[in-house]
């Protein structure tokens, strides 16, 4: 065997395993509150929502969509949503994601802009990368409900 087989085998294994598990979507909400705690619980999560709103307000990619939104309600519902999603002791009381965003004609770029603003807000709030990414991993499955899909095939 050539010497590079020692590189090839683990790489092939890793990529096939990972590509495989990419096709099996995992449930976004796990039973425990580990992530909620890592996010600092209610006080820090509320501050994160405020930071996110502060980052998004001047962002021309997303701000116009919120022109007619009652921000007090959004801020509360967005908090509840993140709280529930991270395993915290909340029950989201807003409307379903698909329903809320359907009429807003949100495109892929706007969704990614919201992800990016959340990343910026989380970095400003001092969260380590793994905590940031775990929250994003739970938000990513909503992309298909929120974004107007370009085709119906994918």
């Amino acid at each position: 065997m050539p010497k590079h087989s020692q590189w090839l085998r683990p790489l092939v294994l890793a990529s096939s395993l990972l590509l495989l598990c990419g096709c099996v979507s995992t449930s976004p909400v796990s039973g425990d509150d580990e992530l909620f705690v890592a996010l600092g619980g209610e006080p820090d999560l509320r501050l994160l929502v405020d930071e996110f709103i502060a980052v998004s307000a001047p962002d021309p990619r997303v701000a116009p969509t919120f022109a007619n939104t009652e921000m007090k309600r959004f801020r509360e519902k967005f908090y509840e949503h993140l709280c529930e999603l991270s395993g915290g002791p909340c029950v989201y009381s807003g409307d379903p994601m698909a329903e809320v965003h359907r009429g807003l004609k949100i495109n892929e770029g706007q969704f990614n802009a919201v992800v990016e603003n959340l990343q910026i807000a989380m970095s400003r709030r001092g969260y380590p990368q793994p905590v940031q990414n775990r929250l994003l991993a739970r938000l990513a499955p909503f992309q298909r409900d929120i974004v107007v899909q370009p085709g119906n095939s994918d």
């Binding site: 990972l18 990419g22 990368q129 793994p130 990414n133 991993a137």
Partner: peptide
């Protein structure tokens, strides 16, 4: 080719895999 980014896929870090 097939490529995927796994959010938090490597010990909390985002992992890109291509085959």
């Amino acid at each position: 080719s097939a490529t995927r980014l796994f959010l938090a896929g490597a010990g909390g870090y985002n992992l890109l895999v291509n085959g």
